[in-house]
Amino acid sequence: MTTPWLVRPPADQPARLFCFPFSGAGASAFSAWPSTLDDVEVCPVQFPGRENRLAHPHYGTYEQLADSLVEVLAPLLDRPYAFFGHCAGAIPAFETVVRLAERGLRTPECLFVSGQPAPHDASRDRMLAMSEPELRGELEAFLLGRGITPRPDMIEMGLSVLLDDHAAAGRYRRAEPVAIPCPVVVVHWRDDPEVSLGELAGWGAYSAAVDFQVVDGGHYDFMDAPDQLRKVLTTWR
């Protein structure tokens, strides 16, 4: 099956891990990850409106994104699978699980959420109060932190994507927790200045089985697939 939502056609591995990027990013956030973790195929999801899908209309809202993902992913859920969402990417991952359950489709063996407060706390994200110049500064700092020289054209393109994603995050509201029928593993990065362990506690209301894992590193170190994270991500197999 070939789809623009996945950066490569799914292989015939026994299990799959679908990976959801953070605001302003695309599937390349997982480019340093191996193609498999043990016998689990890593499947980065490519949202529209960025990278090789720059010409595709933006998804608009997390709810619309999740609706689209249910249709796209349904044929690929024929084997055990899990979702991993970092930062704001955890919200559409969660909303997709909600919709899969509502439609009686196979739900993940596990939802991994990294560096992101629970859905009913998502509106507290400090970035939602940022102006465009402040977001530009965040983007420049992120690129410099990854060892990339922020060229003006790169900044303008990245800022355009970030502003659209930021608007979607600002529109998202879930007033109360809703339980999903799968375990949730919450990953906290020990040196994350963006999100404290306490700010992740709200996920405890979203499943009968919630596990909090603390790993070494900062907010964006997931991009390098460090060993501690790899071990956490293979616990469901």
Rank of each mutant, 00 (worst) to 15 (best):
F142R: 11
F142D: 06
F142S: 08
F142E: 10
L143S: 04
L144Q: 11
L144K: 09
G145W: 06
G145E: 08
G145T: 05
R146G: 10
G147Q: 14
I148P: 07
T149D: 15
P152Y: 07
D153Q: 14
M154F: 05
I155R: 03
I155V: 13
I155Q: 02
I155F: 06
E156P: 08
E156Q: 11
E156M: 08
E156N: 14
E156G: 05
M157L: 13
L159Q: 05
L159F: 06
S160K: 15
S160I: 00
V161Q: 05
V161W: 04
L162R: 07
L162S: 04
L162F: 10
L162Q: 07
L163C: 02
D164T: 02
H166E: 00
A167V: 02
A167F: 05
A169C: 08
G170V: 00
G170A: 01
R171W: 00
Y172H: 03
R173G: 02
R174A: 05
R174Y: 12
E176H: 14
E176Y: 15
E176V: 13
V178Y: 13
V178E: 12
A179E: 07
I180F: 11
P183H: 09
V184M: 06
V184F: 13
V185Y: 12
V187Y: 07
H188C: 11
W189N: 08
W189A: 09
W189M: 04
W189Y: 12
R190E: 12
D192E: 12
D192K: 09
P193N: 06
S196M: 09
E199G: 15
E199C: 11
L200W: 15
